[in-house]
Design a protein around this nucleic acid. Structure first.
Lengths: 115, 115
DNA sequence: TAATTATATAATCATATACTTATATAAAAC
DNA sequence: GTTTTATATAAGTATATGATTATATAATTA
């Protein structure tokens, strides 16, 4: 597959969302691993509401989905999105996120529980 | 090839530039055909300075190049850009621009010379 | 049920963005 | 050399964006 054609307005909207360093990194991380907000907070030097607002924009566009599990809300890439193919193609061109994922897994904020 | 990895800041900057309907359309058109400003003006419902300013941003980022030929300055995609592969991958997901190119070629502003 | 934890939302604000009109520059035509 | 044509640049402006702090909500724990 990997060939879904999007309307130009739709495509530019997706690209604008990915045109922010924080959101692009979030998408890259979520493409490898579902995360809750407090896990993503380990990666970014910004407030919790900022991260939540970025996630909201990505969710509003259908790029990610959320699933509550207890007190945590886990975010993951929405593979059903019509933009999924475009995103996969873009992700091929950015650095892998193993270092950021290491940060998350090293600290395990969902066990520590004081984010 | 088609696998150039860009720094995350660099990639997000390129995506932000393409995250505008006008600029994304310009890039799609230029990927098929070099154009001068007065040709692109046939496609967009906006002022000449607006189109020029979009072209300037794309040029500043190295995505396009310009070549003066007489009174016209022709813009084209810069295949030497390190973002070229990313752009090609993105262009696969947006509609082809034959209708817009038809508009340009039908009116031939460089012959009419009153843009 | 009260306190804690995780997350979302609201309000605010400074900066960025995308347009406009006015003007400058540079080549072509007269 | 003056006028026209093509394009760029400058200045101004309204709106969008991305952050912050403060507060609300919802689940968990004590």
């Amino acid at each position: 597959m990997r060939e879904t054609i999007l309307e130009i307005e739709n495509a530019s909207h997706i690209l604008k969302l990915l045109g922010d360093k924080t959101r692009l990194t979030i998408i890259a991380i979520l493409s490898k691993r579902e995360c809750c907000v407090c896990e993503l907070l380990e990666v970014f030097d910004m407030s919790q509401p900022s991260v939540s607002q970025h996630l909201r924009k990505l969710k509003d566009a259908g790029l990610i989905k959320e699933e509550r599990r207890g007190q945590w809300i886990y975010y993951s890439l929405n593979s059903q999105s019509e933009s999924y193919d475009l995103i996969q193609d873009i992700l091929q061109h950015i650095p892998d996120q193993t270092e950021n994922i290491r940060k998350i897994e090293e600290i395990k904020p969902t066990l520590r529980c004081d984010c």
